[in-house]
Simulated scan of single mutants.
Amino acid sequence: MATANVGLWLYENGGGAEVEAKIVQALKQRNITSVSNLNLRDAYSHQGQIICHDVVMEDLSLFFSYNAGQQSPYQVYLYEAISQRVPTINNYAAFALSEDKFKTSYLLHSHGIPTADFRLCHKSDLAGLKQAMRDWGGRIIYKPTDGWGGAGIVKIEGEQALDMLAPFLADSALQYLYLERFIDYDNTDYRVDIVDGQYIGCYGRRARKDDWKTNISSGGSVFVREPSDEVVTLALKAAAISGLEIAGVDIIYDREQEKFVVLEVNGIPAFATPEQEKLGLNFNQKKIDAIVNLIDRTVHVAQAKVA
């Protein structure tokens, strides 16, 4: 008889469906059943229950949500509500933090983790924007606080460019601007995967020749890269501070300040695609095993509390 019933929602492209099948099989071997495709886009709430594809979400032992590309505000809203009743992975508070670049950098910086210099200001604070430009050598990076995959990230060079942007900012729906100092780096980064406080694997990403963004969705490419102990330790600390059970930590080397810095902590880092596995990124099974161990332990801890 199954000891637990876990709900799953994973991305399917890029080998995601195969990864999910392995997770389902591994859980089954531990006497844990699972229900797949619990996309909260299709869910509704009625009389104190959230129902998705005829599954009462509150009856689950745990909900594992792992799809970065299809998280609408409605889905996130229900994700938060569900987290109040059953364990979720990632836990909702850490997931929500990782979705906000400013709050993540703010927390990491307060714990002594090196990050890019950053500033948050009201959209009408043109003087503050220009001061950041001066302080950071004439180049700043604007990032949407809730973007992913490099979408919406813009490099702004010179105060004249800010003057040209001022009318647009005044008319936009933006209320505030998150800015970072443009870091002098070699156009490559480290993506370090962490699960349950354990180092899983690492790979590098390289920006295309005519760009500076390493994100794959922005044209960056993946290559095999071994991290130093310093990089791994920094990633482990950043993941722990963020509270994420599963994290992908993006790290670059600041050539001007001669130190590694954490750019982002991602709550839904992708598994290696079949094409990337052929390149030598061979950590998928280790990551699957660690996630299954995490799910197993989490549901049994929750059951012990109820008992």
Rank of each mutant, 00 (worst) to 15 (best):
Q131A: 09
W136T: 08
E159S: 11
G150F: 01
G152V: 04
G138K: 04
R134C: 05
I156P: 03
G149P: 12
G152L: 02
W136A: 06
P144C: 10
R139H: 10
Q131I: 10
V154D: 00
E159I: 14
A151Q: 05
M133D: 06
K155Q: 14
Q160M: 08
G138F: 08
D135C: 03
V154I: 13
W148N: 05
D135I: 09
Q131N: 11
T145I: 13
G147M: 06
I140H: 10
G152S: 05
W136F: 05
G152W: 02
G137I: 14
I141D: 04
G152P: 04
K143Q: 06
Y142D: 10
D135R: 12
W148E: 04
K130E: 12
I140M: 13
M133V: 12
K143S: 12
K130R: 11
W148P: 00
Y142H: 14
E159T: 15
K130Y: 03
E159L: 06
I153G: 08
I141N: 01
R134Y: 10
G149E: 07
G149Q: 02
K130Q: 13
D135V: 04
R139I: 15
Y142A: 13
R134G: 03
D146H: 12
I141G: 08
G147Y: 08
P144A: 11
Y142W: 13
D135M: 09
G149N: 01
E157R: 13
Y142I: 14
I140V: 15
I156T: 03
G138L: 09
G150Y: 04
K130V: 10
G137R: 14
G150L: 00
P144I: 13
G152H: 04
Q160G: 14
W148S: 11
Q131H: 10
I153W: 07
K130P: 09
K155E: 15
G147N: 09
G152F: 04
T145G: 00
I153M: 04
M133C: 14
K130D: 10
T145P: 00
V154M: 12
A132P: 08
W148L: 03
R134E: 15
W148Y: 11
G149Y: 05
V154R: 11
G149R: 00
R139M: 13
I140S: 11
E157S: 15
A151R: 06
I140K: 07
M133N: 02
M133Y: 01
I156M: 03
I156C: 07
G138Q: 11
E157I: 15
A151L: 05
I140D: 06
G137W: 13
G152Q: 01
I140W: 06
R134Q: 14
D135T: 13
I156R: 06
G152N: 03
E159R: 08
